[in-house]
Amino acid sequence: MSDFDLDRLGDVWRQQPDPAEMERLQRTAIAVARRARLAAILDICTAVAVAAVVVILVITNPKTQTVVMGSAAILVLLGSNIRLRKLRQVELKGLTGTTEDMLDQSIARVETTLRHHKFTLYGTPPIFLVTWLGFAATEAPRHDSILGSLRDIPGFRPILLGAAIAGAVALAIFLIVSIRRGRRELNRLNAMRDAYRQERDAAAP
């Protein structure tokens, strides 16, 4: 391969896959498009179903509390939908822009995720402690309430405390692993962006 001719290499590169490979590609693409269409339909169906349930609840139980709760449910759904659409728009911009723009966006995304994870990691223990102390300091619930009847079950408090600690430990492990993975990804992204900048700087007059 000593004859270095990009046109000839281009011909080698662009050899068409055989019909079986093409068929496999078609199947993959159609399946992907079908799944995406189904996901879009599911989104619409979920929104319609929630709205219908709220309307039915308000009609059958026309109280202020029902209207407020129903409106809150719709607002939460709407908010998450708007957020999801914004995220998709940002992702789309990254996909259709230049590679450097995409890398900048990816770096910003990973940094934000790292900040959130660190905040959760360092913020959860104090919140957990304050909540626990709050429960311990407040008066015990009445025995006829749900919480009161739960507290009457033998061993309930140690089990609850154990479950909470196990959950906190699992969350901490998950966050630590995610933070490490995020840092590695951030390093790779920064290295790639640096490589692009070096290329750009090298060509600058």
Partner: peptide, 22 residues
């Protein structure tokens, strides 16, 4: 590019299974 940055390991140099014209 965004896919390869998410991979923890370095890209491996595996064989190419793609077939050519039969």
């Amino acid at each position: 590019i965004s896919f390869v940055t998410k991979q923890v390991r370095q890209p491996r140099l595996a064989e190419l299974p793609e077939r050519l014209e039969a």
